[in-house]
Structures are given as C-alpha cells and as structure tokens.
Amino acid sequence: MPAPFVLDRSSVTQVMAWVLAALLPGIAASVWLFGPGILITLSLATATALAAEAAMLKARGYPAKPFLTDLSAIVTAWLLALSLPTLAPWWLIVTGTLFAIVVAKHLYGGLGQNIFNPAMVGYAVLIVSFPVQMTQWAGPLSLTATPLTLAQSASVIFGGDLPKAMLDAVTMATPLDALRTGLLQQYTVDEIMTQPIFGHYGGIGFEWLAGAFLLGGLALWALRIISWQVPLAFLAGIWLAAGFLHFFDAGRFGAPWFHLFAPSVMLGAFFIATDPVSGATTPRGKLIFGFGAGLLTIVIRTWGGYPDGVAFAILLMNLAVPLIDAWTQPRVYGVAPRRGKEPPA
C-alpha cells in the first residue's frame, strides 16, 4: 500500500449528502408556498433514478453497492424534480429521470464521466418534447382559491384526471412565462408587473423559493462543498446581462433583480452549474463557465424560444469546458507564465 496512509474523512457520499441536505430549505419552501406536490415529484424521481442506476450498473457489470450509496443518482433526481413543474404528470418525471440516468450518465460512462449535467439533459429532453406538460406549475398558494392536498396532487400527477377547469384553477404561468407572454403581446414590463403573480423582486412565492435555494447554496459554500467562483460568476452574468438590457430599454427587458430571483437561477447557480463533473475545473475557468452560463441564460430568456434558459445555458457551457480548462491552466509552481502560447489542449 503506497503513501499517503491517512485520508481526511471526506467521501463522495458525504459530498452528495451535503448537496441533498442543502436542497432541503428549497424543498420546504416549495411545500410551504406551492403545496405538497413537490414531495410526490421528488419521491417518484428518486425511485426511478435508483432503479435505473441499479439496472445500468448491473448491465455494465459494476458493483451496485458503492455506486448506489454514493447518492449521486439521488442528487440528479432531486435537481431534475426541482426543475420540473410541481404538477407535471408522472410519466414526464419518469421519462426525464430515465433519460438523465440511463443516457446522460451511464451511456457516457457513469459517475464522473458525463460531459453534460444529467439533470439538465433530462430537463432539456422534456421541454423540447413535451412543452405543454412542462407548464403545469402549481400557482402560489396565496393566489390559489382552493389549494390541492397531497392526495389531490397525487391524483393530478398520476391520474391527470382533473377536469380541465380545475387544472386551470390550480396551475398558473410562472412569472417568467407571464413576462414572456406579456412582452409578446406588446405590453411594457411595467404593465406586466402589475399582474398579481409578481412580488417584490420575482414572482410571489417564487422569490422566496429562490431565497431558500440561495440559503442552501450559501451553506454549501460555507462548507467548501462548492467553490465561490461558479455561483458568483453565474449570478454576476445574469445581473450584468439583464441590467445592461434593462438600462437601455426598461420597457422591453425585465429588471436584473427580477431575473436573479427566479428559483431556477438560484438552483442553477449553486447546485447545477457547480456540478464538478460537467463543469470547469480551474479557478479562472470556473469564473468563465459561470459567467457564460449566466449570460446565455439571459440571452435565451430574452430572444430564445423558451421562457427559461438556465438548463440550455449550462448545457452549452458544459460543451465548452474542455476548451475553457485548457486555456485557463493556472501557473504551476516555479514555471514561468506562458505568454500568448497555445496551451496544451
């Protein structure tokens, strides 16, 4: 057995467990603000992910125990579930999770080998394939006349047998959707913001959910599970890009705070863009990666075909990681800085 003979007590399982723990404030906020539907989504995604992981490990001839207990599959499941509409039908959740685990993770070589964030691949597949179902967001409870119970949420998710009128009563366009639709109908941002769904910064309820994700993310940073570069650069990219557009035409572009306080941004900044496997690894590379993802998010939100762009922005930056890493190698101890020389790619 070679040196070193001691290890600090960290493990992949521990890292993943902290990530899951840091998601709890966001989950609690979601239950509190949007009803218990998210719990069903999370459970369904977790069960699907574990089953898919076990099946793929068996098919690939890997031992099940060390990889099932590393919790990475559950992290993927939770990140996907938290990105999906709270009242999405069951098959949507299962399809997305299966795609994330089977294709995006295992067909690329399993833990540590996936070049794209699996949860975001799952999300992208769903939003491209099933755009209508991807809008079944439960509205904030404070705006809903008759909030759904857990059983009712389950019957919506599993049965989908809710009458159309009732479904319309409990689901609602997200603030980002509302902004997008309003702008397409030639309203100004100020006019759109008078709708009841908008709160102080983001949407009612949504901004608090974003805050809860931010809280969990800051905890991860405090525990040094994630580095500061990616979230900070990501949020800066969003804020600067949105701020730049808003500064020039406040009537046509949403305010930077509004863009920042979407739950998808906080989830993306602290939990998804920070995915070590598919993200940049050098300190400067992390800044570029995060900033690029933030910038692209605003570009997609503003000019793209989808209301939110976090998933596509991160996937696009995933593609650029090998290049970013090669060009941002830090100066090694005792090695003269390279000037204008092509890095070893």
Partner: peptide, 28 residues
C-alpha cells in the same frame, strides 16, 4: 491507519487542485 477505502471514479471536484502546493491540476 485503517485500510484505505476502495477508490471511486474521479468526480473532478478539484479538492486536489485546491490542496496542491505545486499548483498542479491533479485531476487532469
């Protein structure tokens, strides 16, 4: 000195790079 646990795949977390006194990229 408990026996070292079995190795898992690298997840590119770059803790090694943060710890490296030679400023190398150990994961690469």
């Amino acid at each position: 000195f408990p026996p070292l646990p079995k190795a898992l795949p690298c997840i590119r977390c770059t803790r090694c790079a943060d710890a490296c006194p030679a400023v190398l990229q150990p994961q690469e």
